[in-house]
Design a protein around this nucleic acid. Structure first.
Lengths: 246, 246
DNA sequence: GAGTGGTCTAGACCACTAG
DNA sequence: TAGTGGTCTAGACCACTCT
């Protein structure tokens, strides 16, 4: 064997290292569609971890829609590739596109420190005099506008973030850097919306074209709201799929 | 103590029994919002199960959005009640409404055995001569139409289901009964759509009102497609929320 | 330092699938 | 019957939070 898959000295937990290794095997077609994986016990022996650790890694990839398990038969690479593993894992659009290997560009339309409206203050649980960073961006795929994003970032928790370059860095990475905490969970709410004229222009769509609209609040490990955002998605260009289990 | 929470002779796994007991405690306000739960170790001792079983139960309720865990602090009842725990668990609209205690009615508009179009056949992986049950229903909440559903059910796998009464029974329950298998996972795809005139009439909306549209395929434990459906949701009346973790 | 959740192990037995 | 995943246990140690 070339080199060990898992490294006990890594800052990442073993099950995450195992999952990353498996995801690589799938992406690189080492493990092909519908192919059966080695038994959990065998993988555990090969990687020199316990079966529980292998199972935890597998369960992550099942959530992502990459693997399927059938009792008595085995573990298999899932056939349909999921466009965006949306409903399960808190993942930014940037992270999702990077994981899928999609090239995209981000254009910042507005970036300013401001005092937000009540509805935003309530979501961020801040006082009337506290500032937020307002960010308005467009994401392009193949030079076509696909996502329009408005973010309101809690400046009390993310001091200094207002000077970041959001065309080069993702919002999540900057939030984790400046808030000195970890993004842990989020709430997303889906709706269908019509576009305003300005938004339609930005997304290169007709005004009465329906788009997927979602509102999101992102929290840190202490359940403090770091950010809230509104997102308009061209569902003709960017599909949101979710794999659910029972 | 009145009686044991878990029963080793039950057909349900222990972690599910523990999760059900916890959900009951939350619903009955025995455990109130933001309240801290006993430590995992204490719960395990009290319920006479291992800590791993308690952790598995807790992780289920975290997926449902009912609990929150913070390392070093504890496990807490989540504050915001989620409208529809959508993105995580494969759950039918009927099940979700029942769990939330929402009263609803179902009206069957059409129920017929038919040979479907190619796109449906592909989703259900059936031959050109195989029949499906086509079902068109509307769900009402407080006498207002909220959800329009079209289902195509694999009749090869669910023989006899075409005579069921779908105003009295949920689709999932009938599928599991007639297919003699268990629904295990599903794929959902979100879009925004405008309504046709007929659909607008059925949902009591204007034609150009955007609605949330979703397509779904439901599979059994062997990954065979049992059903595919198209759903139109009035997002002004029925909110889809999802709690995500990282 | 005490208390909490997060990770990991080694081993056991059960339930389901297939030959 | 052999091979697979599903469940469960008991115990260990680590990382984080709070005082």
């Amino acid at each position: 064997m070339e080199h060990k898959v898992v490294d006990v000295n890594s800052p990442y937990p073993l099950y995450r290292q195992v999952a990353d290794w498996m995801r690589e095997n799938i992406n690189a077609q080492q493990w092909k569609k519908n192919q059966q994986l080695p038994a959990e016990e065998d993988l555990a022996k090969q990687l020199e971890v316990s079966r529980g650790t292998v199972r935890k890694a597998i369960s992550l990839l099942i959530k992502e829609g990459l693997l399927i398990q059938i009792q008595g038969k085995g573990t298999f690479v899932a056939a349909p590739k999921v466009a965006h593993p949306f409903g399960q894992e808190l993942i930014s659009f940037a992270e999702s596109m990077e994981r899928e290997g999609i090239d995209y560009e981000t254009k910042v339309i507005k970036q300013e420190v401001t005092v937000p409206l009540l509805s935003i203050r309530q979501k961020l649980e801040i006082a009337p005099n506290e500032n937020v960073l307002y960010l308005k961006r467009i994401r392009y795929i193949k030079d076509e506008p696909v996502i329009l994003l408005e973010n309101f970032i809690n400046l009390t928790l993310c001091k200094g973030i207002e000077h970041s370059d959001f065309e080069k860095n993702t919002l999540f990475s900057q939030i984790e850097k400046f808030s000195n905490s970890k993004i842990r969970h989020g709430i997303r709410r889906f709706e269908a919306r019509a576009l305003t004229e300005e938004q339609a222009n930005l997304l290169n769509l007709d005004v009465d074209m329906p788009v997927l609209y979602l509102e999101q609040i992102t929290f840190d490990q202490e359940k403090r709201p770091l950010e809230t955002s509104r997102v308009w998605l061209r569902s003709d260009k960017y599909v949101i799929t979710s794999v659910l289990t029972r």
